[in-house]
């Protein structure tokens, strides 16, 4: 660990990697709780995987893959949202189709782009050590956008996540806020691709929020705790992977998984411990 702290002081790329992890954590902290309570993990997974299509087209055309990722993520989010709002029952199939089609398109374009084959692995599993400063600015801009939109529409987002019918009766434009929420999920996915790659995004999006949910009792607290947990996990994962030269993305995800499992067990034990003495009282 001291070796890592030493190295951070000496190497600019490690400082950038740490910063990238923190920037991604803000996104996962803000949006992860909504993905969790709205139960749209599968939907977020679909958006994340379909992003490869946009990245493939972007590298083929010589553009920034992150811009391609952002465009395709937003497009996928709106398409899935539209299917859900129009047909309701077709949502699962639509997500599965977009998931696979997006990846197929991406692979085809990358296969026909000379010299880009090695980038495929970093798209899929992230490469936090190679985040260029330009991408850091891009991520910071996405973070600001997320923060502004979530804070501005916080009441409406909570109402739509909690009880769509009641929100509609109170005059909240439910369809607009639902689609906006999906777009924010898409933006968050793009934010995290640099850090953990599009396959592992879903873990970083849901696990810190889920751990926060075990111990906090409001969405706002989940957001703060989720952001802090995400920051801790990305930094710790980076530090752990540095010495033995492991890939950082999978290390971060395994840490998150371990934390989630232990938290779930502890929360379950706490629930049993609390429930046993109060049972007779509850019955009376």
């Amino acid at each position: 660990m001291t070796e890592f702290i030493d190295a951070v002081g000496r190497h600019g790329f490690l400082q950038q990697a740490l910063l990238a992890g923190l920037l991604a954590s803000l996104g996962c902290g803000l949006i992860g709780p909504f993905v969790l309570v709205k139960r749209i993990t599968f939907l977020a997974g679909g958006i994340a995987h379909s992003v490869l299509g946009g990245m493939g087209v972007a590298v083929y055309l010589g553009a920034d893959p992150l811009v391609g990722a952002l465009l395709s993520a937003v497009l996928a989010a709106l398409l899935i949202g539209w299917v859900r709002l129009t047909w309701r029952t077709g949502e699962d199939t639509a997500i599965g189709a977009l998931w696979a089609i997006g990846m197929a398109v991406g692979i085809l374009f990358i296969a026909h782009t000379p010299g880009y084959a090695q980038d495929l692995m970093s798209f899929l599993f992230g490469n936090i050590l190679l985040v260029p400063p330009r991408s850091l600015w891009f991520m910071a801009a996405l973070d600001l956008l997320l923060l502004a939109v979530v804070l501005g529409g916080y009441r409406q987002f909570v109402a739509v996540a909690f009880d769509e019918e009641f929100a509609r009766l109170r005059g909240v434009p439910v369809t607009f806020f639902y689609l906006l929420l999906l777009v924010l999920v898409a933006v968050t996915v793009v934010l995290m691709i640099q850090v953990v790659g599009l396959i592992l995004v879903i873990a970083l999006l849901t696990l810190p929020a889920a751990v926060a949910g075990h111990w906090t009792y409001s969405l706002a607290a989940m957001m703060v705790a989720g952001t802090l947990l995400g920051s801790g996990l990305t930094s710790a994962g980076l530090a752990l992977s540095y010495g033995p030269d492991l890939p950082a993305g999978p290390t971060i995800i395994l840490l998150a998984g371990a934390l989630y499992l232990s938290s779930a067990v502890l929360a379950w034990l706490r629930g049993r411990w609390r429930a046993s003495p109060t049972l007779p009282a509850a019955r009376a």
Binding site: R155, V158, A159, F162, A167, Y217
Partner: peptide, 20 residues
């Protein structure tokens, strides 16, 4: 129309009636 395990307090639920 909401799941009972939603992380929200009674006060916040009642406040939703003030939307709009």
């Amino acid at each position: 129309g909401f799941p009972r395990d939603f992380p929200i307090s009674v006060q916040e639920v009642v406040l939703m009636g003030r939307l709009g």
